[in-house]
């Protein structure tokens, strides 16, 4: 049994490694193509030459379209999609649960509640940045409550249960606001906002959300080796030298900041966080550390592609990107789970 341990392994392993090596370049190329289409497509179609002219400023009309309208939208769809994919991979790694998604820690719903309250109170109309600021505040408040509560009891399961409870609480509060609202216009606006969209966002939205997203993503990437150690449970991870409590705090904090800020500027975009890690996993031998970056790229690709589709599908008013992602994403994902080698159960 010990005769030739190396020979069989190196033969069978090379093909298994190949997809992982190709995955990142392929995703980057796809993202670049999607980015070009995202800048080109809209009410006024732009050629490659016009896009370039718009970016450098040599073509003034194109410069307004590209820099003022489509570039902020592209940056938001890329960064928010990446954040959602990364957050999904992080929370699945931390909880060792393939069903977990960023919303499980409650902050997206809390951010949505903050936003809904500004629309309901009319504050969003008087001061345009009241909405994203209130949403970020909502995310922060729910994060502080979650972390303070977990500090008293500890443990990943308690963290997720508290997050889940706060999320349901925020969700019920949104329903309450909707049912109390006497203004049908506000109700419509809230419902549309909740569906999630990248349309009509400016560079100020980018400036407002990007720092939070960068810090949140950094916190999750910092925990990467710990997610790998957690594959064998909390005790084994601790014995391998990882502070599971600190990893829980950093993950929850990172998701709160990043996904909270994403929800604040784009509304509720579900499904990407759940789906992206599952799409990445088979290519990376299910390594919870190595799926992080590909999950982020897949997330960015999903949201950017969806944001191109909403501009291509003819309709009276633009389709909301969050709704489109769920409508197309759910059946596709269902197909993958049922017919592909995703063995969630034994």
């Amino acid at each position: 049994m010990v005769a030739e341990p190396r020979a069989p392994s190196s033969q069978t392993l090379r093909p298994a490694l190949a997809p992982a090596a190709v995955l990142l370049p392929v995703l980057v190329v796809l993202l670049c193509i999607a980015a070009v289409f995202a800048l080109a497509i809209g009410p006024a179609r732009l050629s490659l030459h016009e896009i370039f002219g718009g970016l450098t400023g040599s073509n003034e009309t194109a410069a307004i379209i590209v820099r003022e309208i489509r570039l902020p939208r592209l940056i938001l769809s890329l960064s928010i999609g990446a954040m959602l994919g990364l957050a999904g991979a992080g929370i699945q790694g931390l909880s060792r649960n393939p069903l977990a998604e960023p919303a499980i820690i409650g902050t997206p719903q809390a951010a949505a509640l903050g936003a809904v309250l500004t629309i309901y109170s009319g504050l969003a109309d008087t001061f345009s940045f009241a909405l994203p600021i209130a949403a970020i505040a909502g995310a922060m408040i729910s994060m502080v409550i979650t972390l303070a509560a977990v500090r008293r009891i500890g443990g990943v399961t308690s963290l997720l249960l508290i997050g889940l409870t706060l999320g349901s609480l925020a969700g019920s509060a949104i329903s309450l606001v909707l049912s109390l609202s006497s203004n049908p216009y506000a109700v419509t606006e809230i419902v549309f906002w909740l569906m999630g969209s990248f349309a009509d966002r400016s560079m100020q939205h980018v400036v407002l959300s990007l720092p939070f997203i960068v810090v949140g993503a950094a916190a999750i990437l910092y925990c990467a080796p710990a997610y790998k150690a957690l594959t064998l449970g909390e005790d084994t991870a601790a014995s391998l030298g990882f502070d599971v409590w600190r990893v829980s705090i950093l993950t929850a904090g990172g998701i709160s900041l990043g996904v909270g800020a994403a929800t604040a500027v784009a509304g509720a975009i579900g499904f990407v966080g759940l789906m992206a890690p599952h799409l990445a996993r088979p290519f990376l031998r299910s390594d919870p550390q190595r799926i992080l970056v590909p999950s982020a790229l897949i997330g960015a690709l999903l949201t950017t592609t969806a944001d191109i589709l909403v501009r291509l599908i003819p309709s009276t008013s633009e389709i909301r990107v969050g709704a489109l992602l769920a409508v197309i994403g759910a059946p596709c994902f269902l197909y993958l789970v049922i017919f592909r080698p995703y063995r969630l159960d034994n």
Partner: peptide, 25 residues
């Protein structure tokens, strides 16, 4: 430390990668 944990790992990682986790420290 090998805990008395009868739950199996949730991710379908290859045996080789599971063994390699012991080198994380």
């Amino acid at each position: 430390y090998l805990p008395q944990d009868t739950r199996q790992p949730v991710w379908p990682m290859p045996v080789r990668d599971i063994v390699a986790l012991g080198l994380l420290p």
